[in-house]
């Protein structure tokens, strides 16, 4: 079964239970105690020691269908995670084959294979995967591979009190997401839209197995607006290289021939 997440940010209450549940299940250490002054977000970003991260955005824009005495204001919360991309930059870049696609269609790093070349880090269009400080291995969300083996829901989804994070079969999730979107539009939440729900809306990645319902531009949540798996564009580079390579061969030969005796 192709499993994944549908994260509906309109019901997220920013409780961070997902973040903590993830760290607890995966026994991830804290990333230090630093006050960031980024609203209520003190873990700042996804990384080797934070596989779920809740973003907090205080906007000078009102949500339609919400009225507050503050006027033009709203507070968005969004729980971010590895997208388990249909076409995963990290996976396609990994030279060792450490990153594999599992039977759940998730993108998984085999810790015993990774040699820490760091190529996946540059290849992820979402800035998700990172290298561990200590042993230099790439480290990220596993989609709770171990829990799935035991038919358990991923820890983050299990802990989410409002079902902002919904785990399940992707086709089912996509239908649910579309239904939810329709409801929101009916209620006048015009700005609601799906990010990465399918290949059509995000050709660059072929769609995300962890997709989102957002109410503002991706940049607001620190998501790339048009992510593209780098390999999609590699052909051009290879071509350019081939041409240049022929050039160098020609120049080399030319230099040699031109230097034959009898010539000045």
């Amino acid at each position: 079964m192709a499993a994944g997440f549908f994260t509906d940010t309109t019901v997220c209450i920013g409780c961070k239970a997902c973040e903590v549940a993830c760290k607890e299940w995966n026994q991830l250490p804290d990333d230090g105690f630093l006050f960031t002054a980024m609203s209520y977000d003190n873990t700042a970003a996804l990384g080797a020691s934070t596989w779920r991260h809740v973003a907090f955005v205080e906007r000078p824009v009102a949500l339609s269908e919400q009225l507050t005495g503050l006027g033009q204001f709203s507070w968005l919360m969004m729980s971010d995670v590895c997208k388990h991309c249909r076409r995963a930059g990290c996976l396609e870049a990994c030279p060792t084959g450490a990153i594999i696609r599992t039977e759940h269609d998730s993108v998984y790093v085999q810790p015993d294979v990774c040699n820490g070349c760091g190529y996946c880090v540059t290849a992820c269009p979402f800035g998700v995967i990172d290298r561990r400080e200590d042993d230099g291995r790439a480290w990220k969300c596993t989609l709770c591979y171990d829990r799935l083996q035991g038919d358990l829901t991923p820890a983050c989804a299990k802990a989410c009190p409002t079902d902002s994070i919904q785990f399940g079969d992707l086709d089912e999730l996509r239908q649910r997401a579309r239904r939810r979107l329709a409801v929101l539009h009916d209620r006048g939440v015009r700005e609601a839209w799906l990010y990465g729900a399918d290949a059509a809306s995000q050709p660059g990645t072929g769609g995300l197995n962890a997709f989102f319902l957002l109410v503002d531009r991706p940049e607001v949540y620190n998501l790339p607006p048009e992510p593209v798996v780098p390999t999609q564009r590699a052909a051009g580079a290879w071509g350019a290289m081939a041409a240049a390579a022929l050039g160098i061969a020609a120049v080399a030969l030319g230099a040699v021939l031109a230097s034959r005796p009898g010539r000045p």
Partner: peptide
């Protein structure tokens, strides 16, 4: 290829500058 693949290697990333120049970098590197 050895003379130029490193340009493809960096071009094949999400890093904006490398990605942007992926077609000219190989020539430059070679």
């Amino acid at each position: 290829p050895l003379a130029g693949y490193t340009a493809v290697l960096v071009g094949n990333t999400a890093v904006p500058l490398w990605l942007e120049t992926r077609r000219t970098l190989p020539l430059l590197f070679i």
